[in-house]
């Protein structure tokens, strides 16, 4: 099975992000996990990586509603980065607004749309999707 060496969690709620991290770490498919409390932080890190040609994450789990830079803005900014490696993005949000689901489909980087809470079942679905 494919192993995700580096996964980003972009999520403003500390508890949610801690729980997501714990669930990922219990699964053998995930190696290292990095958390960011909003899109801006993750974007700055990725911009740095793009410049330094450093390690690009394999997967980004992205929340939508966040302060400073929300999920949509992150996606817009992300697409301009021109990273040397393709990164899969999965939206992981508690929004069940159909408009959000539809909108996320318009982003080619977004591979899937999942509702929180992340649990082992959803994680299996993500793994199937990206396999």
């Amino acid at each position: 099975m494919k192993v995700f060496e580096l996964t980003y969690i972009i999520e403003d709620d500390l508890i949610t992000s801690t729980i997501t991290e714990l669930i990922l770490k219990r699964n053998t498919c995930f190696d290292r996990v990095q958390t960011f409390s909003n899109g801006q932080e993750a974007f700055e890190e990725l911009a740095q990586i793009a410049r330094a040609n450093a390690e690009v994450p394999d997967l980004i789990l992205l929340d939508l509603n966040m302060p400073v830079m929300d999920g949509w803005e992150f996606l817009d900014a992300f697409s301009t980065l021109g990273l040397h490696k393709h990164v899969d993005v999965c939206v992981l949000t508690s929004s069940i607004d159909p408009e959000d689901i539809e909108k996320s489909n318009t982003y080619k980087d977004v591979k899937g749309y999942f509702s929180k809470p992340l649990d082992d079942d959803i994680l299996d679905k993500i793994l199937d999707l990206l396999a």
Binding site: D13, S94, D97, D119
Partner: peptide
């Protein structure tokens, strides 16, 4: 949406 978003995220966290 707020109810769905906020209550849901809290309840999800509690479950986990």
């Amino acid at each position: 949406h707020i109810i769905s978003h906020n209550i849901r995220s809290h309840s999800a966290n509690l479950t986990s």
